[in-house]
Amino acid sequence: MKVKESSFEEVVSAHDVGSVVVNGVIKGDMIIIRADQRDDLGHPLDFHALNAMIRKAVMTDCRRIVLEGVLGQRYVGSAASRVDLKIEVHGTPGNNLGAFLDGSTIEVFGNAQDLTGNTMNSGRIVVHGNAWDVTGLAARGGRILIRGDTGYRVGIHMKEYGGSKPAIVIGGTAKDYLGEYMAGGSVVVLGFGTRSGESPVGHNIGAGMHGGGILVRGTVSHHQLGRGAVFGEVTEDDTQKLEELITDFEDAFKMEVPRDWRAFSKVCPNTYRPFSGHYDPTLI
């Protein structure tokens, strides 16, 4: 432990992070920050101040940051890159939670809003609740585990490069445009809580996808597929991947998921060049 309570407060006030007095409670290499504190004018802690505090805590070698009472502050843990850093979020983090994340772990005890894990490169986001629209946009690596439901355009334009393959596991359901433009990685939808007779996913699934795969535990009808997406067979490679992801999911949420591979539908691209015939290159 290198940080002392007093020194932390000193650091914060010395650099004028708004006019907020920070109540950070240090335990070992952990700091607890109350995000619902207010400044002298009674204004809530805004994201500038909160994120500056997080950065400072990291600089002073905190490896576990617990945020209490988060309410809509955006960009929490944005671009955090220390692999041994873990940020716990209690409350409702705002949009772009863990945007550009590059190695650290963020765990949310509550619901996340839109754009969680935007353009993340590596790292891990675990949401013990729902994560709404556009989760995992353009993720190039790392993993997002969501216990509950997601909204529209989840996993849109995820891609893989080199050795990194992003993955999103959704415990509940997803809505339209899941995995649109997808160019790599895995999206897994476990479908818990799906209403009977309904599909756990919406429409236009995998439209324009040209890499990666979407695995849905539950029924997916042909009309739910977007242009360029087709059904594929769940192969042994897929079940291996599923096993690994589901085990991780179970550990994260302390729950059991049946290994009923036959219940999975796989959506994959029909080509890696879906729109090559669209244009007329004739010299005129």
């Binding site: 650099h15 997080i54 600089m59 843990g77 955090a80 890159s81 220390r82 590059d102």
Partner: peptide, 15 residues
Amino acid sequence: MSGLQGNPISQYGLL
């Protein structure tokens, strides 16, 4: 802004 980890001086400069 670079990641949470990094050179404290440049970090301070950007605040």
